[in-house]
Amino acid sequence: ETGKELVLALYDYQEKSPREVTMKKGDILTLLNSTNKDWWKVEVNDRQGFVPAAYVKKL
């Protein structure tokens, strides 16, 4: 879809709370919100949640 910003997972991340999502290094995720410098909201496999901003980079 146009207008979607994507990020690349630089590291594996295992969710530690229900508000977070698990990702694997190399995953491409849809970026939903990056206003917080530490935690970015992403969508992966129809799930939305937060990942550490340092673990992903914008494509």
Score class of each variant (00 low, 15 high):
33 N>A: 09
53 A>V: 05
58 K>H: 08
44 V>S: 15
29 L>E: 01
13 Y>S: 01
26 G>F: 05
38 D>C: 15
1 E>S: 15
13 Y>K: 01
24 K>A: 08
25 K>T: 07
54 A>P: 08
34 S>R: 08
42 V>H: 00
35 T>K: 12
15 E>W: 06
56 V>R: 00
16 K>H: 08
38 D>A: 11
50 F>M: 08
46 D>Q: 11
35 T>A: 12
26 G>Y: 06
44 V>P: 00
2 T>E: 13
52 P>M: 03
47 R>C: 06
7 V>N: 01
40 W>M: 03
53 A>L: 02
59 L>Y: 09
30 T>V: 15
42 V>L: 04
10 L>I: 10
35 T>H: 11
1 E>I: 13
6 L>Y: 15
1 E>K: 09
44 V>T: 15
16 K>Y: 05
30 T>F: 13
11 Y>W: 10
49 G>I: 05
15 E>C: 13
6 L>V: 08
45 N>F: 11
49 G>V: 04
41 K>I: 14
31 L>Q: 00
51 V>C: 03
55 Y>D: 03
24 K>P: 00
30 T>I: 15
44 V>N: 15
39 W>T: 02
44 V>A: 15
34 S>P: 06
21 V>C: 09
28 I>E: 03
50 F>V: 07
32 L>C: 07
23 M>A: 02
53 A>K: 06
35 T>F: 10
55 Y>V: 06
29 L>K: 00
59 L>M: 10
10 L>R: 05
14 Q>G: 07
49 G>Q: 02
30 T>Y: 11
38 D>P: 03
57 K>F: 10
44 V>D: 11
24 K>E: 06
18 P>I: 10
17 S>I: 04
10 L>G: 02
42 V>P: 00
39 W>R: 03
5 E>Q: 15
56 V>K: 01
23 M>Y: 02
54 A>T: 11
43 E>G: 08
24 K>T: 09
56 V>F: 05
56 V>L: 15
1 E>N: 14
32 L>S: 03
28 I>H: 04
11 Y>H: 10
32 L>P: 00
48 Q>R: 12
33 N>V: 08
7 V>R: 02
5 E>S: 12
55 Y>N: 05
4 K>Q: 11
46 D>T: 10
26 G>A: 03
51 V>Q: 00
24 K>S: 09
57 K>M: 15
45 N>P: 12
9 A>K: 01
3 G>V: 14
7 V>W: 07
13 Y>E: 00
40 W>T: 03
43 E>H: 06
18 P>E: 11
43 E>Y: 07
20 E>A: 07
55 Y>S: 10
29 L>V: 07
44 V>F: 15
9 A>M: 02
52 P>L: 04
19 R>D: 12
4 K>Y: 13
37 K>C: 11
38 D>V: 14
57 K>H: 09
8 L>D: 01
32 L>M: 07
32 L>H: 06
3 G>W: 13
3 G>Y: 13
36 N>F: 08
31 L>N: 00
51 V>K: 00
49 G>Y: 05
13 Y>W: 11
55 Y>A: 10
5 E>I: 15
39 W>V: 03
38 D>K: 13
51 V>W: 00
17 S>L: 08
8 L>Y: 11
25 K>P: 03
54 A>G: 10
12 D>H: 06
16 K>W: 04
49 G>C: 03
17 S>Q: 08
57 K>W: 10
28 I>Q: 05
33 N>D: 15
17 S>F: 06
59 L>Q: 05
45 N>V: 11
24 K>D: 04
20 E>D: 05
7 V>G: 13
25 K>C: 08
49 G>P: 00
28 I>L: 09
21 V>D: 00
4 K>E: 09
13 Y>T: 01
19 R>A: 11
48 Q>T: 11
44 V>E: 04
1 E>P: 14
57 K>T: 14
36 N>E: 10
50 F>E: 04
51 V>S: 01
38 D>E: 12
53 A>W: 02
25 K>H: 06
45 N>C: 13
19 R>M: 13
35 T>Q: 14
26 G>P: 00
23 M>P: 00
23 M>N: 00
12 D>E: 05
11 Y>L: 09
18 P>A: 12
31 L>P: 01
22 T>G: 08
2 T>P: 12
23 M>F: 10
45 N>A: 13
53 A>I: 03
14 Q>C: 11
48 Q>S: 12
47 R>D: 03
7 V>H: 04
21 V>M: 13
52 P>N: 02
35 T>W: 10
49 G>T: 02
48 Q>I: 14
5 E>L: 12
39 W>L: 03
30 T>M: 12
37 K>S: 12
14 Q>A: 12
46 D>L: 09
36 N>K: 07
56 V>N: 00
2 T>V: 13
58 K>E: 06
47 R>Y: 05
16 K>M: 12
7 V>K: 01
56 V>E: 01
4 K>V: 13
8 L>W: 07
27 D>W: 13
39 W>H: 03
58 K>P: 10
20 E>R: 04
46 D>C: 13
26 G>M: 03
3 G>S: 13
32 L>A: 03
42 V>W: 00
2 T>Y: 12
